[in-house]
Every structure is written in structure tokens, then in C-alpha cells.
Design a protein around this nucleic acid. Structure first.
Lengths: 131, 131
DNA sequence: TTATGACTTTAGAGTCACTCTCAGTCAAGC
DNA sequence: GCTTGACTGAGAGTGACTCTAAAGTCATAA
């Protein structure tokens, strides 16, 4: 049983973001107490986890909403949900490759700068140092 | 020698984004022809590559601008640039870990759905199917 | 018993990074 | 000359937050 703030802390997102997601209709099943306060249960945190996952892979909020609605609609939508997850995983995997490439580039530049510093030499790569 | 459109195509970003980046002051060294048209050289594409890399790791445009300005300022800023790249690489590496975790979750869900389909069983995980 | 403070709620304004539309310029081809 | 097509900058629109303000609830201290 968590308030918005507690759930946000536990899931490592901002309170604002969790409220925004709630307002966006991502958690229609979250109950409220008699004072209209949202009370998240452990099972609700699992949903936050999935939303967080989908968002971090760049799925837009409209599509996340759609996915949640499919879940609520019940077992008739399992095939459709399966396809969404499969495509999303493929997307995530290509992002992983991309990110690995970027890390390589950063690594190359890091080494380049370190050598410049160690050898006290000039940055010949910089277009401002050319011509 | 590329126009905005050609450079954008080559670097796999949208023409709009490249224009936006140019307007943001990321490529002050890009020359223009007599008709005021930006002409990107191969060395300029390397800069686009770096900007793309920094953006994709979540560095904000203000910080990218600052990094570009440090480069232009010359060799006195090498240490500072080194630090930026080092921190950025660390950031990217933790993003990589995060992304790997998300892929694992997607993988788990994919398997779960596939088994539901194969065995024609009910989605017991769905909060809408409970109670 | 009132009031103070620490929480919650919502609506709505602000921000960032695009993303798009549009009016205008210019060189080349008909 | 006229149109086509690619370029230009200004500025409006969008998505996803991010923040602020005002109002409600509740426990505890004066």
C-alpha cells in the first residue's frame, strides 16, 4: 500500500511523472481511499514497471495507453499484446546496438583526449585548429 | 560537400532536426555558398556524429552547445572536454545496463504471452482477471 | 479548540527538443 | 517570362514531462 510519492520513490521515477502517467490513464485499476488518495498495491507497482519499460524504449504514451486497454479488455487480446511486446523487444535490441556504438565512440574520444593530455599535444582533429 | 538534406540523409537524422541543430549553434564552422546555402563537408559530418551521440545519451542541447564552444575555444579546454566525455560515457554505460534489464523484462513477457497462446490458457497475471 | 505543518489532490502554466508549416529567395529548365 | 524544386528563417504546434498554485485532510501541539 503506497501513496503516489511512496510508489514513485520505490519505482525510481518522479512523483510528477507518476501523477502524469496516472492522469494519462495508465493505471485505471488503482484504488483510492475515502479521501480520494491513490493507494498503489504491489501488483500496481508491476504495472508501473511495465510502463517504465515501454517508455524507456521510446514507446509513446498513446501506444502505452492502448496496450493497457488491451490488457484490461481481457484474454481475447493476448495475441495482439504478444505482437506489441515482440516488436518492442526488437526495437529495444536495436537500441542496444546503437547505444553500444555510441559508447565505442565515446570511448575512442576519451582515449584521444587522454593521450592529448598525457603527451601535452595539440588537438589536430578540431576543425578550429586546422588550416 | 552536402546540403542540409544530403547531410541529414547520410547521418540518418531528419532534415528538420539538422536545421534545428544548426540553428541551435552546434555547427558554427559550417560554410555557406554565395546563395547562403549551408555546405557540409566530411569533417562536418563527424561533428554531426558527435552531436547525435551526445543527444542519444540524453545530453541536453545547452550542454552540447557548451561542449562545441569548448572545442572551438581550443587546446586550453582539453581537460574539461575530457571530463565531459568521461562522465557522458559513464552515463551511457549505466543506460546500457538499464536497457539490458528492460530487454530481459520484455523477453519474459514475450515468453509468458507465447505460452498463454500455445496452451490456450488464461492471463492470470492481469489484475482485471483477478478477483 | 484552533492552528500549524505535512501530506494529498487537481488544473493549468512552463519547458525542452523537436516537428512542421509557411512565406520568401534563388538557379535551372521549358 | 514562368514554373519547379531545393533552400532559407520565423514561428506555430506537439509530446512528455515538470512545476506551481490552490484547496482538502489529518495528526499533533499550543
Amino acid at each position: 500500500m503506497y501513496t503516489v510519492k511512496e510508489a514513485a520513490d520505490k519505482m525510481e521515477i518522479s512523483e510528477h511523472t507518476l501523477r502524469f502517467w496516472a492522469k494519462s490513464g495508465f493505471f485505471p485499476f488503482v484504488k483510492r481511499n475515502k479521501n480520494n488518495i491513490r493507494i498503489f498495491q504491489d501488483s500496481d507497482l508491476e504495472w508501473i514497471k511495465i510502463v517504465k519499460c515501454l517508455r524507456s524504449v521510446g514507446i509513446d504514451n498513446k501506444s502505452i495507453k492502448k496496450y493497457i486497454e488491451l490488457c484490461i479488455k481481457g484474454d481475447s487480446t493476448i495475441k495482439e499484446r504478444y505482437d506489441i511486446i515482440r516488436v518492442t523487444k526488437e526495437k529495444a535490441q536495436s537500441q542496444l546496438k546503437e547505444l553500444q556504438g555510441q559508447i565505442e565512440l565515446l570511448n575512442y574520444k576519451e582515449k584521444y583526449y587522454r593521450e592529448l593530455i598525457e603527451n601535452n599535444s595539440k588537438d589536430t582533429w578540431n576543425p578550429m585548429n586546422k588550416k
